[in-house]
Design a protein around this nucleic acid. Structure first.
Lengths: 217, 217
DNA sequence: GCGGACAAGATTGCGAACAATCTTCCGAAG
DNA sequence: CTTCGGAAGATTGTTCGCAATCTTGTCCGC
């Protein structure tokens, strides 16, 4: 992660994390003075943090009416997954070319951990492994531009974070798909890596569009 | 284009346009008071505009050292084109599904205009048509998420705007590629549309990595 | 002549106060 | 009872001012 360069950056990261962790819920109004008190900083700092969050689509700023955590619709969620799909397919392809042996070992270890969690029925742990695996692939790709955009897209998906994992029968599928991605990268086969990642996120998209209800608490 | 909702947004758009048009050159220092005087707004407005531009990677903000127009390296330019490639391939695919007859007619007309400019040796006009065609395809795709990201990426490419067009023998190739994209969309063939766009931007990428020198004034 | 401390100027970061705008609540008319 | 109007409160947008930090120029020792 990028280190924090000042109190302003710290506030930005904190707000982002608060939204990501669900402490600030979608559609919740973000009042500047309240946030300033909560984060122990001035209103100006909160303000610029909100501008930044607005620019990467995590909150929506309406003039004279303040900021709210963006509530992404089902349709937008599908758009976001589609976009992530093509971007992560790109990183997967690049990772197949660039990944070091060390990085590939790391991916394999993460995969094993995921397998263990899955066998133990620990879906939350599996989900964490999932995130770690994607992060590892992105890091191995050394593609800064794609990495930046993907990070922005992930932040918008809070509401749907665990939805796909909770669908009965989905986790084993998911595990197979991830395994295929890692093997393609390990084999240094860009085309296969890209195809496997696309296949995986097409699965996520299908699962998502099928569960157009049932909020997660 | 999104309409301007206030003086703050106006300043953001103006700065963006200034950078895009080359009036503020890469690596140029952006002093807040100077810009404020130039745009006839307060320093705070300039400040938030700079924060926004910083967030979408067009300027780089160094704490206590101000803002500069980001100078993108050749390597970054390649990354950006690769990223645009996959994103625009997505919009191209969606456009093949979603485009109305009216929109397809519009694309065809733009293509004809490009052909005329090319025949007349008007490379600048051709380049404008190029931009219009890509914009038309993105609009026809109705893919807001991809559209937003592509718009951000385009803004970073100022330095390389005309470079590929100026390569001898490239324009006719480029025209053929664009023609193929439009025909695939007109035929409502998503796979072909995606493939054609990928082919096109692979051409741009190759041309770009081959011209790793020769600045454009 | 050259390099490093030091001071002066320039610029950004931030807090406080004020103005502009929106929201809410209350009352009165229909 | 509903709806319109307006005033009070809340919240955002902007300006001002000052402290913190960086940059530049100068002077002194070597």
């Amino acid at each position: 992660m990028a280190s924090v360069r000042g109190p302003a950056d710290a506030a930005y990261e904190q707000l982002r994390s608060l939204i990501f962790r669900g402490e600030l819920q979608p559609n919740e109004r973000l009042v500047e003075v309240d946030l300033a008190a909560r984060l122990r900083v001035g209103r100006a700092v909160v303000r610029t943090a909100l501008v930044r969050l607005g620019q990467d689509g995590i909150v929506v700023l309406t003039p004279h009416r303040g900021a709210r955590v963006k509530l992404v619709s089902e349709a937008e969620a599908v758009e976001i997954v589609q976009t992530r799909a093509v971007l992560e397919a790109l990183t997967s392809r690049q990772a197949a070319v660039q990944a070091t042996t060390r990085e590939i070992d790391g991916l394999r270890r993460t995969l094993e951990r995921m397998s263990a969690r899955l066998a133990a029925g620990d879906l939350l742990g599996y989900s964490e492994g999932n995130a770690a695996l994607h992060a590892g692939i992105i890091a191995a790709s050394r593609h800064q531009t794609a990495a930046r955009l993907i990070s922005g897209l992930r932040a918008q998906m809070v509401r749907f974070q665990f939805r796909t994992i909770l669908v009965p029968g989905r986790p084993p599928e998911s595990y197979q798909e991830h395994s295929a991605i890692v093997e393609a990268i390990a084999a240094h086969d860009p085309d296969a890596a890209e195809a496997a990642m696309r296949h995986h996120l097409r699965g996520v998209e299908r699962t998502l569009s099928r569960t157009n209800r049932a909020e997660v608490p």
